[in-house]
Design a protein around this nucleic acid. Structure first.
Lengths: 206, 206
DNA sequence: GTCTATAACGGGATAGAC
DNA sequence: GTCTATCCCGTTATAGAC
């Protein structure tokens, strides 16, 4: 089972992924995409019928690639502390390989494409992290952590992990970071972020 | 001193702000903008010479409106705990009035417009929060908090405050929030976020 | 300053040959 | 499946009358 040469369809989708993520739906053109895929516009429309269609395909894959693992780990059956470290570690590594995915998803999910949200909600791409909520309630009942709003804790986790990638350009500029500096910075956060979350959960206990 | 009717130039800039923020540079058209400002495309180019020019004007104002207050409060001369509460409170209220600003700024700061970053860096729009760093060092020396990397703490603060607005659509969808629910959610964060930051700073002290 | 009209170009999409 | 050529429309920008 050797690695096949990618089909034209795949090359187009890859090119589309690259350019949509980099420039957004409005600024990426089908001509760009065709050229980047080393074909022509006719083939783009042959395989995907329209730019909008191609975008939907790319967006949904990107969304699944990012947010399904997030919900997955949160609902895993693991001790709380282990889970939080695992979450930060794995999502950080995932994002280091695709740093523009979060800003792409969040920025395209407005304006004309805002209705997509609802569509994906119904497609079940967006599980409410119920397992995580229950776990927090149980730990609070046992007195291991203080009682908390699970939505707030989940938002904090997502915020702390995603933000450096969302604001990558600003961070690099502000602190004059090279790519390598940035990579170190987010690796350090594999320690900082879980400590932050756990300090909050454990604060105010008698 | 009564409220003057807005000049044509101001109406155009307002319309541009609305549409650029809502749809992004690529998807907003000068026709949209002209119509929204109740004029015509000729006047848009009369006042701003090009779409790109108009965009720059709008973007720089938006950037200053968002990130200058952030750096400002962090460098204020206030006790640490007071400052953190003030920061979260004021930035949250600011963003409640302009919830799309953060996603607009971060999403436009890529691709073709990425070079803008450097331009604004040099324009001094991006002070490194040096006062805040020194304050954290002093407090650590006094044993009030543990020794920390100021960049990480600053990133945490920004992340926790900005993220709900960056991910507004996802949050609302995920938790089935109305506008009012969302407003309550971010108001609750005026307590959660400072507690989170302070718990981290104070954790591990003997 | 403001308008109408139009130029000049680039965009998405398709027809039709191979 | 793949290509070239082309259509048609929307877009940015400008010319020129008022």
């Amino acid at each position: 089972m050797t690695r096949n040469a990618p089909s034209t369809e795949d090359k187009i989708k890859e090119a589309a992924r690259k350019l949509f993520v980099e420039k957004g739906f409005g600024s990426a053109t089908t001509r760009d995409i065709a050229e980047c895929a080393e074909t022509n516009v006719a083939l783009v429309n042959y395989y995907f019928r329209s730019k909008e269609n191609l975008f939907q395909a790319v967006f949904q894959e990107s969304f699944a690639q990012t947010f399904v693992p997030i919900a997955g780990i949160l609902n895993d059956d693991l001790p709380l502390e282990v889970k939080i470290y695992k979450f930060v570690d794995q999502i950080t590594d995932l994002l280091k390989r695709a740093p523009m995915l979060p800003i792409f998803i969040l920025s395209e999910m407005r304006g004309e494409h805002a209705p997509m949200c609802q569509a994906m909600q119904q497609a079940g791409a967006m599980q409410p992290a119920d397992g995580f909520r229950k776990q927090l309630e149980e730990e609070a009942a046992k007195g291991h952590i203080r009682p908390v709003d699970a939505r707030q804790v989940e938002a904090n986790l997502m915020a702390l992990v995603l933000f450096p990638f969302l604001g990558m350009n600003i961070l690099k500029m502000k602190h004059q970071m090279s790519d390598e500096d940035f990579s170190k910075f987010v690796d350090e956060r594999k320690k900082v972020v879980p400590e932050t979350i756990l300090a909050y959960l454990r604060s105010g206990l008698v």
